[in-house]
């Protein structure tokens, strides 16, 4: 039986084409036939890097802003945190031969609890951290869909860098917009 197909606004993918990124996980590939995808982004953030010449890229799904919150865990699983995870994502993509100045950078997630009253603010602290880390690396977001209280699915098609966000039953192109 052929693998099931998933329809998206930019065509369809099969399970075999897809690389799934779990929570606190990182995946990178230079196989242009693949699509990297992560599901159920709530307060977590999914961030993608893509090099248009190499048609290679990667995605990080981080859960909390800073590894300093838990030094042991950030050593065990650096992908759990935005600061340690992003550095590794960048290293992985650059190791393919990608160039910093060519990278397309997208992000989605960072949702907030409804009526949080500013108490936990995990989503907004994740969003702030991402901008801080990008600034530190001299990089800027090409596009993002963050905040609100909805969950999101983020995907990156390596053949052309098409980055899609699905939320509330609708799918839209984050990049190219």
């Amino acid at each position: 039986m052929p693998p099931p197909r998933t329809e998206t606004i930019l065509g369809s993918t099969t399970d075999a084409d897809r690389i799934t990124v779990g929570v606190a996980d990182l995946q990178a590939s230079r196989d242009a036939s693949r699509t990297i995808i992560t599901y159920a982004l709530g307060s977590c953030i999914g961030v993608t890097l893509w090099d248009p010449i190499l048609r290679a890229g990667g995605m990080l799904h981080f859960m909390l802003p800073e590894g300093a919150l838990n030094a042991t865990k950030s050593l065990e699983n650096p992908f759990m945190f935005g600061d340690t995870g992003f550095t590794l994502l960048l290293e992985r993509v650059l190791a393919f031969g990608a160039r910093r100045d060519r990278l397309v950078i997208c992000a989605a997630g960072g949702a907030e609890v409804l009526a949080d009253e500013g108490h936990f603010r995990i989503g907004s602290r994740n969003r702030t951290l991402l901008r801080k880390v990008l600034w530190k690396h001299g990089m800027l977001l090409s596009a993002d869909d963050t905040g609100g209280s909805h969950s999101r699915t983020l995907s990156l098609r390596l053949s052309d860098g098409a980055t899609l966000v699905k939320s509330q039953g609708k799918e839209r192109a984050l990049w190219p917009s």
């Binding site: 929570v23 606190a24 159920a40 982004l41 709530g42 307060s43 977590c44 799904h61 859960m63 949702a111 907030e112 609890v113 409804l114 009526a115 949080d116 009253e117 108490h119 936990f120 995990i122 989503g123 209280s149 909805h150 969950s151 509330q168 039953g169």
Partner: peptide
Amino acid sequence: WVARFAGLGLGADGMLYPFDRGAR
């Protein structure tokens, strides 16, 4: 809420619930 912050059980409802202040 802890499960939701860990990215578990997020469907269409996402984070569209209040975290009860009294409980907290």
